[in-house]
């Protein structure tokens, strides 16, 4: 999902930067500082996840984990992903510093969307919660793919063809992320329910 340096036009970079800054500001403001350690742990998980390559047949893609970040952190996913992306850009040369804003929006906005869509279903019945968590992981990658397509509109020729390509290539990742997210949420529900959104004692 990382867009490389030098692909996008200046306007797209600036727009991405502004949106990312706004999202990060909201995230920092809304972040509960009691949970700063949790944000850090999830940022680390995100940072490392992109090194885990999923090889299916001839294709390979990597985990993103933005679904679980969104479900657990809400808006705080923005600063977490922003920091992790800076480090990925500097240390791994994934993405780049100028595309940081765009990449942050591509990965963090779907997290927030999934937070609003699914966070209040997590404490419903088991099957509902599993479905919600799976969809959270699945859809956040799908939305990221769509946003990636939008960011690339101005540089690639045909939008629909490219979105199909991106979604097709990332389909296995969506399914895996869905499963991973569902497992995480069900596990946390049992052992640390207070980490999940909407927890009432």
């Amino acid at each position: 999902m990382h867009i490389s340096e030098g692909v996008l036009s200046g306007q797209v970079l600036v727009a991405g930067g502004v949106l990312a800054a706004a999202g990060t500001a909201i995230g920092l403001k809304k972040m509960d500082y009691e949970r700063v350690a949790e944000v850090g742990i999830l940022a680390s998980a995100f940072f490392v996840a992109s090194l885990i390559n999923v090889r299916i047949g001839v294709s390979s893609a990597h985990l993103i984990l933005n679904g679980i970040l969104g479900l657990l952190l809400g808006w705080a996913a923005f600063p977490a992903i922003f920091v992790a992306l800076i480090l990925q850009a500097v240390l791994f040369q994934f993405g780049g510093i100028t595309v940081l804003g765009v990449n942050t929006v591509i990965m963090a906005l779907p997290s927030v969307i999934c937070y609003y869509l699914f966070s209040n279903i997590i404490f419903k019945s088991n099957s509902l919660a599993i479905t919600a968590a799976f969809l959270g992981g699945f859809l956040s990658v799908l939305f990221s793919g769509l946003l990636l397509g939008v960011a690339l509109i101005f540089t690639e020729e045909s939008f629909f063809e490219m979105v199909l390509l991106i979604v097709g290539a990332n389909f296995p990742v969506m399914v895996i992320e869905g499963i991973v997210t569902a497992f995480c949420v069900m596990f946390l529900r049992k052992v640390r329910p207070e980490m999940l959104p909407g927890y009432v004692k």
Binding site: H62, S127, A169, A182
Partner: peptide, 29 residues
């Protein structure tokens, strides 16, 4: 009921994994 559901989700997703058309490389760099 719950077990059945988990099993079903697992099977379907595994099936989808293998059916997935994976011709494109999609790494990060």
């Amino acid at each position: 009921m719950k077990r059945l559901f988990i099993k079903w989700v697992g099977l379907v997703s595994l099936g989808l994994l293998f059916l997935a058309p994976g011709k494109m490389a999609f790494a990060h760099k």
